[in-house]
Simulated scan of single mutants.
Amino acid sequence: MRVLVVGGAGYIGAHMCKMLAESGHEIVVLDNFSTGHKAAVQWGRLEEMALADVGRLDAVFEKYQFDAVMHFAAASIVGESVRDPLKYYENNVSDVISLLRAMQRHRVMRFVFSSTAAVFGEPQSDFIDEQHPRAPINPYGASKLTVERMLMDCVSAYGLSSVALRYFNAAGADPSSLIGESHQPETHLIPKLLRRVAGEDIEVRIFGGDYPTPDGTCIRDYVHVNDLCSAHLLALNRLREMGSPTFEAFNLGNGQGYSVKEIITAVARTTGKKLDLSVDPPRHGDPARLVADGSLAKAALGWMPKYTEIADIIDTAWRWHRQPRY
């Protein structure tokens, strides 16, 4: 298939491009490089532009005649979304509407959407499945849920088939170390710890030490970036096989939670370097535990995560951070 990867210069998007290329698909990367890296575009052709540029977007669709579109181009920092919600609705909703309109005009009817566990808000159960109430508590989660609702409406209105994949905590890097996780600023725990260990002057703080968890720190579900991408590939194949338009959503996680302190200990074991970090007051809106029930993705998509041990996930990330390429 010929696939447009929107946000293909970013962390997950670049890993997706590598996997698509290795699976025999033809790739076009669309990115405006607001957060992505040109050095990460190693597979497929590049179209540098913004989704809001309707004229150029139409030209790209006319030029390539896509079979499907994958979207990875969201703004995704929760705290920033609270401070500047309009940025998140512009980037995560308005720009997606522009993309979906272009797909409609050019009769591209397969869409794989990068969503998030933030659509659920405060957890009401230890393991979050697809039936869990969706009540986001920040503009980031609300923007993603808005797109999911739009995609549901697009089924009957336009004949669009789509799959939304809700990530829990993406982590790790491709074992080749050709690509990895590099954000400015970095907000994710594992890369922040690894960058600190590697000698960067980067602040790492533990927020909250008295949560109702075994060691008092928050528990999260970490899933390897390549496992996320394998779910996208399976979703793409599912869309190709579907006989009638539909919308589906799947939660992606390992179903196993690790606390902040357990991650710090695992990083120390992998790197051989210990970090002594102080505990600050908890952040507002941080749930004590967020762990996925990924059984539906396994049953419906045949998804089988390869990286189920946190040590293996951190090892791939550490290999990247020892010699980052961008």
Rank of each mutant, 00 (worst) to 15 (best):
V163S: 03
A173C: 11
C17A: 14
L236N: 10
V41E: 08
F61Q: 01
S34V: 11
S259T: 12
A266K: 00
L51N: 00
G7H: 04
S98F: 00
R101W: 03
D126L: 11
H37S: 13
D95R: 03
E181L: 11
R166S: 09
T187F: 13
R220I: 02
H284P: 13
V279W: 09
S156G: 13
E130F: 09
S34Q: 13
R149C: 09
K87V: 06
V6S: 02
D276K: 09
L193S: 06
A102P: 00
D210P: 01
G180E: 09
V223Q: 06
G36M: 01
Y88E: 00
S81F: 08
Y258W: 15
A266M: 04
D221F: 05
L301C: 10
M242W: 07
Y158A: 14
D276P: 00
F127C: 02
I202Y: 08
V155P: 06
V5C: 12
V78Y: 01
I97A: 05
R240I: 13
W43E: 12
E22W: 10
C154V: 00
I202D: 08
A173E: 14
L236W: 04
A266R: 03
S176Y: 02
G24E: 11
E248L: 14
A266L: 09
N226G: 09
V60I: 12
N32Y: 02
S278A: 14
K18M: 14
Y11P: 08
G272D: 08
N251E: 07
S34D: 11
H37V: 02
G172T: 10
S230R: 14
M49I: 01
F61H: 05
I263K: 01
G255D: 04
L189M: 15
H188R: 15
K298E: 14
Q256E: 15
M70Q: 13
F168S: 07
E148C: 06
S278C: 11
G13W: 04
Y140V: 04
A288F: 02
A268L: 08
F111T: 06
F33Q: 04
